[in-house]
Design a binder for these strands. Structure first.
Length: 455
RNA sequence: GGAGGGGUGGCAGAGCGGUUUAAUGCGACGGUCUUGAAAACCGUUGUGGGGCAACUCACCGGGGGUUCGAAUCCCUCCCCCUCCGCCA
């Protein structure tokens, strides 16, 4: 949500952003909004005047009720009419306001689609960071990434797709899951499940070491939580809505697609002290996504599933702190992938591809699948500045002067489990179909290598 | 699933149809006093909208209604608490 005063001050800049961010201009109609805004303010002052009159009449009524009655009834009629107009105007005013995207970072790359995303950096095990001249836009760095599984003992073999590796190792079963739950579900069993637990442990230990607060949030939430983070109204079809017949209250509940909405909603309608900011949190939760619109895409394996486990990192910050946290999250992302010795790149998302409305700046971290020779998104780091905090009404009292300000929110994927498992299977696969266990996980997994099941 | 009680300013807590929208206490902030502090005393102390401003309007869990007039009466929803039942 934007500050209406700032929209009035800079309508042309907002129009430009609506265009750049590819928001539907019929929904985010700045001119129409300005028109309604003017009407609304006019009606508001009419209401104010009527109320002032009503007060006077009521005061007369104290001593002479009969005299007040007639005038009062007339005023009531008129204010009903104007209230009605005001409500109607406000409804449309709000509906448009909800579709305005956040202001953007002046340094956000301008572009028409993902081909215009800018590569910030790329890293390869042992070799380290690619020199800047090998980075570019779109997939420019791909040709400089390893072309065979990086951790394989030999290079002369045909790498397998993660689905096949997972099946051979007896650790990923999408067939049986299909019977039980339908397409895009999976059972993860045995050693691969242990590997997931080990990844979780690796990262949670690091986050605890950094004094991040763990939180176990509700996963079924009301509409306001999803609206607050701007997953609604845009992404309404991306979440599952629970049928209301068998829930206690008649309000609809939604399964979260990420713990971000529910974590930030922990602070909804609260006023924090500047001294306690930034608050850094992480949650380990399942995530549920309908994947409407991508049915038929990535149907193999566990790359795109309806349910997956994720560690989410969130921060509620003061005004000047969000940019720093945005970098801190990136550092943690890099730390994890370097621990696991997985090649990756970081992409600065351009205006047309920068996620939901709340985005002020956004980057993706993409693992390089050296077996499949493609990048795969595993983390998304987003600075939403005060956009979400306005919707959720999260404020803080400033240290000096005691004024109130909206907090900033920053969110990042700590790790998307399924996809990280894919990355490990792909990059650590061996010619015989076995998969080495990344060094950093060996202690917890208790094995150096996962072997295919016989037969 | 059943029965009952309750939601008022940062907190506690009065008000239950008309002493401008909220008593009183605590806390917080400023001041007096003091070498300093405490105590005492004096003053200030909610949020949001509109306006350059003086100012003005709204808000007593949310929404709707009755009334000249609602924190106060009615309806409805939400939330919290207590007891019974069921349950990992």
């Amino acid at each position: 949500m934007l500050d209406p005063r700032q929209i009035r001050a800079e309508p042309e800049r907002l129009k430009e952003i609506v265009r750049l961010r590819r928001v539907d201009p019929r929904k985010a109609d700045v001119d129409r909004w300005l028109e309604l805004d003017e009407q609304r303010r006019r009606l508001q002052s009419e209401i104010d005047n009527l109320n002032a009159e009503k007060k006077q009449v009521a005061a007369i009524g104290k001593s002479d009720p009969q005299a007040a009655r007639e005038k009062g009834q007339e005023l009531r009629e008129r204010s009903r009419e104007i209230d009605g107009q005001f409500d109607e105007v406000t409804r449309e005013w709000n509906a448009i306001l909800e579709w305005f995207p956040n202001w953007i970072d002046p340094d956000m790359p301008i572009g028409a689609g993902e081909e215009d995303n800018v590569e910030e950096r790329a890293w390869i095990p042992v070799a380290g960071y690619l020199p800047p001249e090998k980075l570019g836009r779109a997939n420019d760095s791909a040709k400089h990434m390893p072309q065979t599984p990086v951790h394989a003992e030999e290079t002369e073999f045909k790498p397998l797709h993660h689905t096949e590796l997972g099946e051979r190792l007896g650790g990923i079963d999408t067939l049986q899951a299909g019977k039980v739950s339908g397409s895009r579900f999976a059972y993860i069993i045995g050693d691969i499940a242990v590997m997931q637990m080990a990844i979780q442990r690796l990262l949670t230990d690091e986050l605890l070491r950094r004094s991040y607060q763990p939180i176990v949030p509700p996963l079924l939430v009301r509409e306001r939580a999803l609206f607050g983070t701007s997953h609604f109204p845009e992404g309404r079809d991306q979440v599952y809505e629970i049928k209301t017949d068998n829930v206690e209250e008649p309000l609809p509940l939604f399964l979260v697609g990420s713990s971000e909405p529910t974590n930030f909603s922990y602070f909804m309608d609260r006023t924090l002290d500047e001294a306690e900011l930034p608050v850094r949190l992480f949650a380990v939760t399942p995530c549920f996504r309908s994947e409407a619109g991508s049915w038929g895409k990535d149907v193999k394996g566990i790359k795109r599933v309806h349910q997956f486990d994720k560690i989410e990192m969130n921060a509620v910050t003061a005004e000047g702190q969000s940019a720093g946290i945005y970098e801190e999250f990136r550092e943690i992302n890099e730390w994890l992938l370097q621990q696991l010795e997985l090649p990756y790149r970081i992409v600065d998302k351009c205006t047309a591809d920068a996620g939901y409305l709340a985005t002020y700046r956004q980057r993706d971290v993409e693992v390089w699948l050296s077996g499949s020779r493609e990048f795969m998104e595993v983390m998304t780091d987003t600075n939403a500045t005060e956009y979400q905090a306005r919707r959720l009404n999260i404020r803080y009292r400033t240290a000096e002067g005691g004024g109130l300000k909206h907090a900033h929110t920053v969110n990042d994927t700590g790790v998307a489990m399924g996809r990280l498992l894919i990355a490990i299977l792909d990059n650590y696969q061996q010619p015989d179909g076995s998969v080495k266990v990344p060094e950093a996980l060996r202690g917890l997994v208790g094995k150096e290598r996962l072997a295919p099941k016989q037969g």
